Amino acid sequence: DHWEIRVGDITIHLKDVDEEIIRWVEEALRNGDDLEEIKRWVEEVLR
């Protein structure tokens, strides 16, 4: 699977990601969370 999350001008590409993570990231972006923080979290989860 390949996911693209778009929020404003930001697009995040994710592969082999659980839908729950996608929802979490979308929510975090909508809440204005720091992008670097989100990326770190996702990388942590995917490890």
Rank of each mutant, 00 (worst) to 15 (best):
E20R: 11
I12F: 14
W3E: 05
I22R: 12
H13K: 13
E19I: 13
R47V: 15
T11H: 08
W24L: 09
E43W: 08
K39A: 07
R23Y: 03
R23Q: 09
G32P: 14
W41Q: 02
V7D: 05
K39W: 11
I38S: 00
R40N: 09
E27I: 11
E19M: 15
L35M: 11
K15E: 06
L46T: 02
I38D: 00
L29A: 01
N31I: 03
R40H: 07
E26P: 00
G8M: 06
W41P: 00
H13W: 12
E36Y: 05
E26R: 13
K15N: 10
K15H: 13
I38E: 00
V45E: 14
K39Y: 14
R23S: 06
E26D: 06
D34M: 15
H2Q: 10
R30V: 09
D34I: 15
R23H: 08
G32K: 04
R6Q: 10
D16S: 07
T11A: 11
G8R: 01
E27A: 14
I12V: 12
E36S: 06
L35W: 13
V7K: 05
W3C: 04
L14Y: 07
I5K: 01
H2T: 12
D1P: 13
E43A: 07
W3V: 08
V45S: 06
R40V: 03
R6W: 12
I21T: 08
R23I: 06
R6S: 10
W41H: 11
D9A: 11
G32N: 07
E36G: 07
I22E: 02
R30S: 04
I38Y: 01
E37Q: 11
R47A: 15
R6F: 07
E44V: 03
H13D: 09
R30T: 07
E19Y: 12
V45G: 03
N31A: 11
E43T: 02
R40F: 03
E27Q: 12
E27D: 12
E26T: 15
G8N: 08
E36K: 05
V7L: 13
T11F: 09
I38V: 10
A28T: 11
L29M: 09
L14A: 04
